[in-house]
């Protein structure tokens, strides 16, 4: 059964913030922490991520999908968050929920805490993600009869932070993401592209879910965990 839990997330400034997590928790042995895709891709993949969790639940695996400070129902301002503060938050979530394994979705790979084994789905850097978001902004500006250039927006983002596709990204977060290529990982295995049928749902213009893809991803994880 799914439910919501609270967990204390450390903040960039100081102190902690109580954040939500969607959990399938029956205190079972195998416990997967899921680091969701970021920003616009988070919306596109949310349903699909929960579909995967539901399947894992049926396979006897607990899973946790935390909200990072500044996202979803969080009371914290998004623009105050940094990539490092989110990394600290994911490490805290792993500890709080006694995670034994990790699944990262897209740019969630940038937040993977050290030491946990697991999987990455379509790992992606911050650089390419920002490129799409900056482009969305220049296209929208042009539609509205304003001229904005990617280069100028990048400068603004690094200096003052910037709002992209409705997300207010602070200067530290912007700079860190701009410099972040797809990370490498020694403890996480990439789910092979050919193992998941069809195109990635983050490409879709609108959020969607795909049962076959969810089956494939959950099966890879469930089979992997059953061999341990």
């Amino acid at each position: 059964m799914r439910s919501f839990a609270q967990w204390p997330a450390p903040l960039a400034a100081k102190g902690t913030s109580e954040e939500h997590a969607l959990v399938f928790n029956q205190g079972r042995e195998k416990r997967l922490l899921i680091l969701p895709a970021l920003f616009d891709e988070a919306n596109k993949l949310r349903r699909q991520t929960v579909e995967i969790m539901h399947r894992l639940d049926l396979s006897g695996i607990d899973s946790v999908l935390p909200d990072f400070p500044g996202c979803n129902d969080s009371m914290q301002p998004l623009e105050a968050q940094t990539l490092d503060s989110w990394r600290a938050a994911t490490a805290a979530a792993a500890k709080h929920f006694d995670a034994t394994h990790l699944l990262t979705m897209r740019s969630g790979a940038l937040l993977a805490p050290d030491g946990l084994p697991g999987w990455r789905y379509a790992a992606h850097g911050g650089k390419q993600m920002l490129r799409s978001m900056l482009r969305a902004r220049t296209i929208a500006a042009r539609e509205a009869g304003r001229e904005e250039s990617t280069a100028e927006l990048e400068q603004t983002g690094r200096k003052d932070g910037i709002e992209l596709a409705g997300w207010k990204i602070g200067p530290d977060m912007f700079a860190a993401l701009s410099d972040a290529a797809t990370p490498s990982s020694e403890t996480l295995a990439d789910i092979p592209r050919e193992a998941v049928p069809g195109a990635g749902l983050w490409l879709r213009a609108e959020p969607d879910e795909d049962p076959e893809q969810a089956d494939a991803i959950a099966a890879i994880i469930a089979i992997g965990l059953s061999h341990e």
């Binding site: 978001m133 482009r135 969305a136 983050w202 490409l203 213009a205």
Partner: peptide, 12 residues
């Protein structure tokens, strides 16, 4: 469905 974010994704 082709709003500015979708067009940006398409171009990328």
């Amino acid at each position: 469905e082709l709003d500015s974010m979708a067009v940006a994704g398409l171009l990328t």
